[in-house]
């Protein structure tokens, strides 16, 4: 048990360090954005804040002033990073609301979408993978291989467009955009879930096939254990040991997909906010949303590490992917 506790400490230390590194990297990039902010961008921010009709050079200068571009660079960077690490992002340059409030609101939307998509992807991918694994090289396996390749070749935004055309425009079953009713999550979650299901299906299939041919599963059979207990006690758990780390890899793809799908369906989430912030050069919101998304990935990976630690007692070099 001692080894598990040290394993826990190692995971938490490693992921905290990663989180810190991510925060510094994102903040650094955002700082560069501000440093390079050209005049017309300040003008655009001012326009976003006051409306295009009311904006003038004075307002643009005020914006530049607010960002503190007259101090030496290293001082600016220092206070910038210090602010970021204290979660002090200031106010949105566009809406003037505290950035932290906005991010909190958008985070809920993103978490809803991410959770729904991930659940769907695991259900769909897991089912396809297990079915394919029943007879490697059989008809189902080939169909599953085709599915995996097809899903890989269609980017989420295209898949989303196709789903909109079919379910919304042609059949009129589901709302295409928006964030109000319960049914509005169906299309975004379906888009992302189907996109993610491909890799999950492949990994599940390979894991189940490999575990099914392992010595310990064959031995469990010859011990006289009934088929369903072999499946539940040995196959599922060991396949999960392989599959769960892949979910950590998927986290990056999941968040990338969230950004695209939220923009496509106008879903009120971090990705939607991020794209808008890029468009309006709203640096505080840009920094906070990018940071939130990256830390979300670190969080998912931490959970994945902990799950692996719980599933698999073997000591390992903690070099899990992502």
């Amino acid at each position: 048990m001692r080894s598990r506790r040290t394993g826990l400490a190692v995971v938490l230390a490693r992921r905290s360090a990663q989180g810190l590194g991510v925060a510094v990297l994102v903040s650094l990039l955002c700082f560069l954005v501000v440093r390079r902010l050209p005049g017309d961008a300040a003008y655009r921010i001012a326009a976003g804040r006051y409306g295009y009709d009311l904006v003038d050079q004075e307002a643009a200068d005020a914006v530049r002033d607010e960002l503190g571009l007259d101090r030496p660079a290293w001082q600016q960077l220092g206070s910038w990073l210090a602010d970021a690490l204290q979660l002090d992002f200031g106010r949105s340059l566009v809406t003037s609301r505290p950035v932290l409030d906005e991010v909190g609101y958008y985070l809920v939307g993103t978490l809803q979408l991410a959770a729904a998509s991930l659940a769907l992807a695991i259900l769909l991918g897991g089912a396809v993978g297990v079915l394919a694994a029943r007879r490697p090289g059989g008809v189902l396996d080939r169909i599953a291989t085709g599915w995996v390749a097809g899903v890989r070749a269609v980017p989420p935004f295209l898949l989303g467009l196709l789903l909109v055309v079919v379910f919304s425009a042609q059949l009129g079953l589901l709302p295409a955009v928006g964030h109000g009713s319960a049914s509005s999550i169906v299309l975004p979650a379906l888009t992302l879930g189907v996109s993610l299901s491909g890799l999950i299906a492949r990994v599940t299939r390979d894991a189940v096939v490999e575990v099914g041919q392992s010595d310990y599963v064959r031995f469990a059979h010859t011990k006289g254990l009934a088929e369903r207990w072999v499946l539940l006690r040995h196959v599922v758990r060991n396949a999960a040991v392989v599959l769960v780390p892949y979910l950590g890899v998927q986290a990056v793809i999941l968040i990338e997909g969230v950004v695209v799908v939220e923009s496509l369906f106008a879903w009120q989430g971090l990705g939607h906010a991020l794209v808008h912030a890029v468009f309006w050069r709203d640096v505080p919101v840009l920094q906070a949303t990018a940071l939130a998304l990256a830390l979300l990935i670190v969080t998912i990976n931490t959970l994945v590490d902990l799950a692996v630690l719980w599933l698999d007692p073997r000591p390992r070099r903690l070099e899990a992917p992502a």
Binding site: V33, I253, I255, V259, L286, A290, A294
Partner: peptide
């Protein structure tokens, strides 16, 4: 480690925000 937790899309978004 830091780069791995940042999706490609995010990096591109940030860099394109950097440029005009």
């Amino acid at each position: 480690e830091a780069f791995v937790a940042i999706p490609a899309l995010l990096v591109v978004l940030l860099v394109s925000a950097l440029a005009s």
